[in-house]
Design a protein around this nucleic acid. Sequence first.
DNA 1: ATAATAGTTAGAGTATACTCTAACTCAAGC
DNA 2: GCTTGAGTTAGAGTATACTCTAACTATTAT
Lengths: 151, 151
Amino acid sequence: MTYSIGQVAEKTGLSTYTLRYYDREGLMPFVKRAPSGRREFTDDNLDFLDLITCLKDTGMQLSEIRHFVELAMQGDATLETRLNIFKQQQQAVRDQIAQAKRHLAKLDYKVRFFTAACDAGTEAAVSGDCELPGQPIVIDESLRVKKAHPA
Amino acid sequence: MTYSIGQVAEKTGLSTYTLRYYDREGLMPFVKRAPSGRREFTDDNLDFLDLITCLKDTGMQLSEIRHFVELAMQGDATLETRLNIFKQQQQAVRDQIAQAKRHLAKLDYKVRFFTAACDAGTEAAVSGDCELPGQPIVIDESLRVKKAHPA
DNA sequence: ATAATAGTTAGAGTATACTCTAACTCAAGC
DNA sequence: GCTTGAGTTAGAGTATACTCTAACTATTAT
């Protein structure tokens, strides 16, 4: 069973433009062609494309992915190199998650701060301009410009 | 106490080019100038720049950040809008973390798979072409091309 | 057989975010 | 006072990843 480029576009969410672009950039040398020249994607090809998408989404550049694909095409001689690439990317994603969590803590703080500010009607009444996410948020009632808890 | 653009570049890791570019793009209308025309960054400015960096690093485009900055310059009238922006971005980051974790699971599987393949000396000996991250990895000893555990 | 649909290529165009150059000005140290 | 280093602007150039157009061909449905 094989898939046309349009079917692959539907399955993956990538546009046919993008799929052809990836092919031109050497990211899919494994995709075979029908005698007419049309691409015929196999299930294995889709799995590999899924891996390519994983690498791209985790920040690897297309040029690096092409390099990885070239190594994969060379077979078992490049097993260690590919293992090391995966280890590197694994660490990169761990770092990305750690940073995203720090960013999330900051955003959590901002949501708490602006919730209080909306409640008070003004930023001026809310304590803690400071960016420490753990900071408790306090409203200075004397600066409130909006009736408290207008239930 | 104020900082020159060069000092801010050092502190933040952004280049002076980038800082001036951000200014031109309307991301820092709050930065005051000396009579000579030089930018003078305050500590508050640095805090705001840090927030801009947080939004940018979590995937917000410069055009959206400019919009946010414009709202911030308008004061308390835009409190709710800004709260909603933070809530949206908060959810976006949660989604990003969830996706990164799925990608990490796939990479973890790849590391296990290629560790086994390196051990066996060939991909062919390793079970599970499939991409299920939970899949146990097994080496078919009859296909091994490398002596087992050459301690 | 023919029309509609979906594929092909080469190459141009776009979006985003920088990154650098040129020409100039300002501030500080000798 | 003059050099050095760092700042200023406008505008050009670059990198990356698409995204689309044009001209053409192949497949499918009627």
